[in-house]
Design a binder for these strands. Sequence first.
DNA 1: GTGAAAGATCGACGGCTGTCGATGGGATGC
DNA 2: GCATCCCATCGACAGCCGTCGATCTTTCAC
Lengths: 95, 95
Amino acid sequence: MPMAIARVEESVELLKALADPTRLQMVGVLKRSSEPVCICDFTASFELSQPTISHHMARLKNVGLVEVSRSGIWAYYRLKSNLDQRTRALLEALV
Amino acid sequence: MPMAIARVEESVELLKALADPTRLQMVGVLKRSSEPVCICDFTASFELSQPTISHHMARLKNVGLVEVSRSGIWAYYRLKSNLDQRTRALLEALV
DNA sequence: GTGAAAGATCGACGGCTGTCGATGGGATGC
DNA sequence: GCATCCCATCGACAGCCGTCGATCTTTCAC
């Protein structure tokens, strides 16, 4: 039974979102953290500009890997809670 | 314990190799096949030029996902036999 | 040797993507 | 109101990547 085209495209989008050193490490941080992580923490630990960090996080959000909660002027990100089993297995193999 | 940089880069190369619809489906075909698959089968089933198919397979080969055996004028590809556990788990979650 | 077939390589083109500085937008504090 | 801070968005640029036609290499058949 060949892979359905729709599922291929969906998997590819997920893979492209993870296929960047910065984003893969961001996901790693979020996966290991028990609490949501502030964007300011990422801008502090990666040697990249703030717009770049924001851009990467937006890509992770667009593929449904992370979700955001705002508190005042801060934005806290965490891995989405209801990731499907396949995605969780993939992260488990990666991070 | 954060991810080692070398392992991040290695994972990213693997993810980039898989983050394309054609290559992901190629890997799917190889994973499901009990026997090596001829390049001519891929050029026949994908609506892409022969150089493009060859280019994609070369990328899969460069990251160590597949290996080739030639017989006469034909080239047969299969998933590399000694993939590490992490990579196998990743393919299991994807294909 | 000649020709044909499979596959790899090359050169070129357009589109996507990572990066930045500049700017915008909302919340906080004075 | 005004300045300041965090973050998102925009515009621009360079580099990578998917794709193709053309060509080269190797093998086989005659």
